[in-house]
């Protein structure tokens, strides 16, 4: 297994480098932060001086070389706007998002498996139809819109929950609830579809005919086979969750990495943006390794190939 991880790691490192190059050059195509940083009344000379002192007037390739050299020494540059090392900003924000995404993913996975399996047991039954409708409908509403409506209803009108911020467990309910909508809808559909397929397989049919118990069939025979697809999709949803986190963190005022990234993009705070990318990319690669391991556990054929 160590060699497996190692091999995956080197491949991933290469992919990471590609991503970094991509973002580094793309980000600089969007312009430099001089005008955003300096006051509107700054003169042309002041602007030129600012750009020069921060190296924005060098060719992008030179800037990239300088950046890579820094990264080798674990120096990820300073945040222009925050006046502190970019990595500090990222390390402070990352755990927030990790917790938010972790709780959301765990909850949606559990719910999706339960709802999806039950729906697949009797496709087109009332339960299946209602569950499908609800999960699809919930995944079809714009999340920022749901978030604001939720605040107006549950916090302002009913006074049940705090409007925003973090702190007590009650602060978690709305952000996690809103963030869950999307993965829950998709995962339930995927679990259901995969389970229908799995339950239609001959050996499961045989088990069913032999009168094996419902839960046994679902969890032992069906789920095991359905898990492959579910894990693929759940893995994909991890990056997608960060998308949702950008919106949810913005609305609810959570100091997470989504919030930080969007701010870094808008401000052209390149060092922070790059540090964010390295961090999320690393986390997602790490998770992909875990998924691959899970894959090979669940399906021996992958390991041999």
């Amino acid at each position: 297994m160590n060699r497996f991880v190692l091999k995956h790691g080197t491949q991933s490192l290469f992919a990471l480098l590609c991503l970094l190059v991509l973002v580094f050059f793309l980000a600089r195509l969007t312009g430099d932060p001089t005008d955003l940083y300096l006051p509107m009344d700054a003169s042309i000379e002041q602007r030129a001086e600012f750009a020069a002192s921060h190296g924005f007037d060098d060719p992008v390739v030179v800037q990239f070389g300088r950046y890579l050299a820094g990264v080798m020494r674990f120096d990820f540059g300073d945040s222009l706007f925050q006046g502190r090392p970019a990595i500090d900003a990222v390390l402070a924000a990352f755990p927030v998002t990790l917790k938010l995404a972790g709780v959301t993913m765990a909850l949606s996975l559990v719910l999706a498996i339960v709802i999806g399996s039950l729906a697949a047991w009797r496709p087109r039954s009332i339960f299946d139809r209602v569950a499908s409708m609800l999960t699809i409908a919930s995944a079809s509403a714009p999340d920022f819109w749901v978030a604001i409506v939720a605040i107006l209803v549950f916090a302002v009108s009913l006074g049940w929950l705090p409007t925003s911020g973090m702190g007590s467990p009650a602060h978690w309910i709305m952000p996690v609830g809103v963030l869950m909508f999307r993965p829950l809808g998709l995962l339930t559909q995927v679990v259901r579809a995969a389970m229908i397929g799995a339950l239609a397989a001959p050996y499961v049919k045989t088990a069913r005919a032999k009168g094996a118990g419902k839960s046994r069939i679902i969890f032992v025979h069906g789920l095991r086979n359905a898990m492959l697809t579910v894990i693929t999709v759940a893995g994909d949803q991890a990056a997608t969750l960060i998308n949702g986190a950008v919106v949810v963190e913005t609305v609810f005022g959570w100091p997470g990495i989504g919030n930080l990234m969007i701010q870094a993009i808008q401000q052209r705070d390149f060092a922070v943006l790059q540090a964010c990318i390295l961090m999320t990319a690393f986390a997602i690669f790490f998770m992909n390794v875990l998924i691959d391991i899970a894959y090979s556990r669940l399906d021996p054929r992958v390991r041999t190939s």
Partner: peptide, 26 residues
Amino acid sequence: GKVIMRGTDVIMSFPSLLMALIVLYV
């Protein structure tokens, strides 16, 4: 096959919304 999968890894390892945002800024 490996090249394709690494390529998708690159895309997947960065939140699509933010990638879209950067590209659309350009």
